[in-house]
Amino acid sequence: MNQSEWPLWEVFIRSKQGLDHKHVGSLHAADAEMAIQNARDVYTRRLEGVSIWVVESGHVHASNPDDAAAFYEPANDKIYRHPTFYQVPDSIKHM
């Protein structure tokens, strides 16, 4: 095995001004500068982006899918957080 495999980077692209950066995939590069250049060549050959973020994959921390049920449980039964929970009289406008 090659000891010097280039680190893995996650790539995020803003497809146009006004939109969020969105995860598009990953690639290997020796450093951040090369990661951005490679991301341009790999992920924006057809004008898919106006801005690129790269983050070394090791720096991404993720929630555990096995805990999903308990982890998101607190939001499960709070239907009063949604506007549709409230009854508004028909005669009331603009609400």
Binding site: N2, S4, W6, A30, D31, M34
Partner: peptide, 13 residues
Amino acid sequence: VREAAMAHAEKRK
């Protein structure tokens, strides 16, 4: 090329 790029990156870091 791969080795040189890595060595360069490590040196800069």
